[in-house]
Nucleic acid binder design. Structure first.
Length: 408
RNA sequence: GGGAGUGUUCCCGAGCGGUCAAAGGGGGCAGACUGUAAAUCUGUUGCCGUACGGCUACGGUGGUUCGAACCCACCCGCUCCCA
């Protein structure tokens, strides 16, 4: 049987590991319990989390037992890694709510039945820690000098780092210790930015229990020029269909950089490597086909095959100029906007969220960025009759943002 | 606790007491070119108004002034030096 470690490696998922050979061996000889932590900083998972779940899934499929650790405790502190400023403190209610959202979304990807995977919350053990006790049992094992030298605090040494956040590493390390002692957890995985936190845990476990445990980080999902992937102007690309519609999700991948396509296919999809290697990305047409495949596969996994098909159909129709717009994003206008039997174009743009303000809408029109039912709008004062709206009109903003507008 | 700085529009950052909705860069948006890509070039980028204009903004609160992002006082946040 193929070793999962080799599979992860071949797909380019592995970034750093504490002891490659030992990890490889361990994964080959026994069913290993491992964990990945997720801090509940938002009410939906995003693309970055998705990568983590892909890894989790690979390992689960290979017979290992994942622990998805919801950071209901660590989120109270806030990970300073990679942040230039302290992040906003979340309330307990927000954190618990976010964790619940995570929990529901994760169940879609990972099989938690019959103990095949566990979902735990570190708030269960972190929130009630006794300060003095914790300092004596865990704090002793950490060297401040060493911590300060860690790469992840570098940017914070200039901007400032609060004691609260400084403790984050201890919290996460303690998690590993707790999981090792109570669930026989032997490995921790995480994004490459988590390296320092992970080693902290590995060392703590060794110092306290003498057990050798392992850490492994995987590649961060970044574009070729190093930017974090899954971020757009409007924020993150969410997995929650209410926050990022399946169509937008599809389009995000459909519009990805040429140079990132192969990498994304390897990292995020479950298409076999041989098949990916065979995908032609040398011509414009072939690259577009590959992007379409990528977008379809991911939408299918994250949402459903039906959603993926709809998004694909809609996109094909829109971009080939056909008029069918069954599945495109739509907006129902408030009837109160009707004045003298018509609605002003600027009001339509604002209510459909195609423009943030009327001023922006006016600019768009003046610059020729708005097309109504195939006709370029040139007059910002244009109105659209109520009858026409009742039938439904299609507005295009820029090259690829479409919206169907109807009157409620 | 003492001292020195600093806080500007999405971000960085410039900003003589009036001519500042505020230079410049980044980012965003749009146009051209393209392959629903990248790069490049152009325009644009507080809100309302077709426009003259009005309104809201320069950490907070007061004050000086005909007039304040710019001056003063106090407060808050952050950085650095000393303790």
């Amino acid at each position: 049987m193929e070793n999962v470690f080799d599979l992860l490696k071949a797909r380019g998922l592995v970034a750093q590991a504490t002891n490659e050979d030992a990890i490889r061996e361990l994964l080959a000889k026994e069913k290993v319990t491992f964990y990945i932590g997720f801090d509940a900083t938002a009410d939906s998972l995003h693309v970055g989390h998705f990568l983590q779940m892909v890894v989790m899934k690979h390992l689960q499929d290979a017979g290992h037992r994942p622990i998805a650790l919801l950071g209901t405790g660590t989120t109270m502190v806030g990970d300073p890694t990679g942040k230039t400023d302290m992040r906003k403190m979340l309330t307990v209610e927000q954190i618990d709510h976010n964790a619940l959202c995570f929990q529901q979304q994760m169940s879609k990807f990972i099989d938690f039945s019959d103990g095949k995977a566990l979902m735990l919350r570190n708030g269960d053990w972190l929130r009630n820690l006794n300060y003095i006790e914790f300092l004596r049992n865990v704090g002793v094992h950490f060297s401040v000098n060493k911590m300060l030298a860690a790469e992840c605090f570098k940017s914070r040494m200039e901007k400032g780092l609060s004691f609260l956040e400084f403790n984050y590493m201890l919290m996460q390390s303690y998690d590993f210790l707790h999981l090792n002692q109570n669930f026989d957890c032997k490995m921790q995985f995480g994004g490459n930015d988590q390296w320092a936190n992970i080693i902290g845990g590995v060392e703590l476990v060794r110092k306290v229990t003498g057990n050798e445990v392992f850490g492994l980080t995987f590649t961060l999902l970044t574009t070729k020029d190093g930017r974090k992937m899954g971020k757009t102007e409007g924020g993150a690309v969410w997995l929650d269909p209410n926050k990022t519609s399946p169509y937008d999700f599809f389009q995000y991948w459909r519009n990805i950089d040429d140079q990132d396509v192969t990498n994304c296919l390897k990292l995020l999809t479950s298409i076999p490597l041989e098949e990916i290697d065979a995908i032609d990305v040398t011509s414009g047409a072939a690259i577009n086909a590959a992007k379409e495949r990528l977008a379809f596969e991911l939408t299918k996994t994250v949402h459903s095959e039906e959603d993926a098909q709809k998004a694909l159909d809609t996109a094909r129709q829109l971009f080939s100029g056909a008029a069918d717009h069954e599945h495109m994003p739509s907006t129902q206008l408030d009837p109160q906007l009707v004045q003298d039997g018509a609605v002003a174009i600027l009001d339509i743009l604002v209510s459909a969220q195609l423009a943030a303000s009327k001023g922006e809408g006016r600019r768009l029109v003046q610059q020729g960025g708005i097309v109504l039912d195939g006709e370029k709008v040139t007059d910002p004062l244009l109105t659209v009759s109520a009858e026409k709206l009742q039938q439904g009109v299609v507005i295009r903003k820029g090259k690829k943002i479409y919206q169907k507008i109807t009157l409620a």
